[in-house]
Design a protein around this nucleic acid. Structure first.
Lengths: 377, 377
DNA sequence: TTGTACGCGTTATCAC
DNA sequence: GTGATAACGCGTACAA
């Protein structure tokens, strides 16, 4: 038996027809006689023939797949920890042929469900993207890479359209990317580059949150945690400042603490304020992933949330429902964002033929215990 | 400006070289002079050139990507609900060019985090698969479909190896699939078809669980919930019976309730027993996704868990930590299973060249409140 | 070091 | 209705 995959030629030979007829038998069933078609289909089945997606993509000029690309962040990070906060688990081991039993490895925490690591922001968006593509019968290519141009190009060659998660550092170089296919950028401010945008209503959500904190909790002593070089975070910071200004509360024009990612990194200004006893009453974090480790940090230092300090997040990831206390946050419709991105690519008429869309998607404050409210969901 | 995607010819023309030189500039940087290479790279960047994966795959015979395929289950299901229990959210809407604001849609529950819907069993495995591929710098194709042969073939042409989640009904037809590439099947008993297997130690986990229920809770009145036509469930059911037999407890040779998927479906036998007051003391469910809706059902009917009924699950998905009461279960190393599958495909020397591996991965009982224990994690 | 020419497996456009 | 045959874009012997 041939190790090679059978081709149209094999089928054609077996059915005593030309390769064109074989192709038609599949793509234009009504253009050929029933008898011939039947013969071809039988031959194809007997040979186990299945068309090569690569060749088909070449001939047709499109692959039918859509891509979702994430940039690896380029910042330093502790060993074994991904830039998005997830744990890099030990690699899968190589296994010998035949049956083998892989024992439960107590040492690797990744075996246990850790909502701090999964699902995160990107995971929920990705899921929405996948669901929408699945509904459309289109495969999804998941790719990642740090080198902007090369990595994007690499994956771009495989798909008809590409949705991109920019890392903090990738924003700049993305402008150079001139791909001849529809592109959607998540959480990236519009820049007239012809690419679509899907992003949350950061300003609206932050305004609603800060208003709640001032009005309902009488807060006036605020600090912002998060680095403004992340576009989403910057929008949140600006809305935070503006809202406080509207209430007559003045704040510095830079964040109190510009830790970029949570966990063991950063929080230096917070730690310093803790020592000095000058920690503000309210810590507004630019994301849940920044707020959750902060809750731990404060607990370690004997501060009670929300009695001593109020902490809020942004995104509405699942882990915020599991923390102690539960986390007040602004929920982004992450799945809807993923779906919207997919829709934009699916609806695209062709390379560059459609005017760029900027989809700003509504957010919603979720009040929980970390601000002093009780859980509502 | 040309709307067409630029090719090697365009780059070659612009850089005044031949297409071979362009190709070498990317694949064999050391074979050509620095000067020429630089010229080519500049031209490529200016044109926004990216190699076509389709053409490359055709020429090279492999694509560099790995695939993960899920079968849509073929059973009837309520509108708007996926076979795996996830909610099919409203489709993303089409948007006009320019800025548009999409308001928060209170009506669509999918906007809110619902751990009952995500992440599920498959999501965790998929994540492991993706992490391992990402570490290897390989893109992942996510595909799905109900028609075995066609759907698999469709994705087969795009990847060098394929991992497959079989649906309950797909097991049979999979045998026909003769792809000339390495294949890993999740949760599918070995069948001498030359494909790799990655599956959990269902028997070991179930034995440990049942032993706990008998020894530590003195249980003797058992019932099993789950359909044995799912391979994993069958292994669990058999281990359940054998363990109980070892304790001298006799059980019917078919499950008490063969509901296949949770939520609003099924549980007919449970409901009947509820009416008759003949519900067994312990309900051992074949999966968490089967156990969680059952908890709700019992609560609705005024039964207290674990006081009146003990309920256990299997899988260890996140939602089991959030239910009331929290769910005693058997944790599968889902992420590790995904990683292992990816490793098998990555390590594969070539089509059919390696002897099939059966990786049986250890499980672990997680005791929580639904069996009367207190939460341990 | 660089250029030419062919093959990869389809689809599509023509004749017949 | 069916059969030749030319793209499709890239990799790569082989020649120069």
């Amino acid at each position: 038996m041939d190790a090679r995959r059978p081709t149209v030629y094999d089928v054609a030979a077996r059915a005593n027809v030309s390769i064109a007829t074989v192709s038609f038998a599949f793509s234009r069933p009504d253009q050929i006689s029933d008898k011939t078609r039947e013969r071809v289909l039988v031959a194809a089945r007997e040979l186990g023939y299945m068309p090569s997606a690569a060749a088909r993509g070449l001939a047709r000029g499109r692959t039918g797949a859509l891509g979702l690309h994430s940039f690896d962040l380029l910042i330093d990070r502790p060993q074994g920890r991904e830039p998005d906060g997830t744990v890099t688990a030990p690699r899968g081991v190589s296994l010998p042929p035949g049956e083998s039993f892989v024992p439960w490895d107590d040492a690797s925490g990744d075996y246990l469900v850790d909502p701090r690591a999964f699902p995160l922001y990107v995971d929920e968006v990705q899921r929405g993207f996948e669901l929408e593509c699945r509904a459309a019968g289109r495969p999804v290519m998941i790719s990642s890479g740090s080198d902007t141009t090369t990595a994007v190009a690499e994956s771009a060659g495989r798909v008809d359209g590409l949705a991109i998660f920019p890392g903090p550092s990738a924003a700049v170089s993305l402008a150079q990317v001139t791909l001849k296919m529809p592109i959607v950028l998540f959480s990236t401010p519009p820049a007239g580059d012809g690419h679509h945008r899907v992003l949350a209503d950061n300003a609206g959500g932050m305004r609603e949150l800060v208003t709640h904190l001032v009005r309902d909790h009488g807060a006036s002593d605020f600090a912002f945690i998060g680095a403004v070089r992340v576009a989403d975070y910057r929008e949140r910071f600006e809305a935070y400042r503006e809202t406080l200004a509207d209430f007559g509360i003045r704040t510095p024009d830079t964040p109190f603490d510009d830790s970029l990612l949570g966990e063991d990194l950063g929080y230096t200004p917070v730690l310093a304020a803790l020592r000095d006893g000058t920690l503000p009453r309210v810590l507004v974090c630019a994301s849940d992933q920044l707020a959750l480790p902060l809750l731990d940090l404060l607990a370690v230092h004997g501060l009670r949330v929300p009695d001593d300090v109020i902490v809020t997040g942004f995104d509405g990831i699942l882990a915020g429902r599991l923390s102690t206390p539960t986390l007040t946050t602004v929920r982004q419709p992450l799945e809807a964002m993923g779906r919207t991105a997919a829709r934009l690519l699916l609806d695209s008429r062709g390379p560059g033929s459609d005017a760029p869309v900027v989809a700003r998607i509504g957010t919603k404050v979720v009040l929980r215990r970390s601000c002093g409210c009780s859980d509502a969901g």
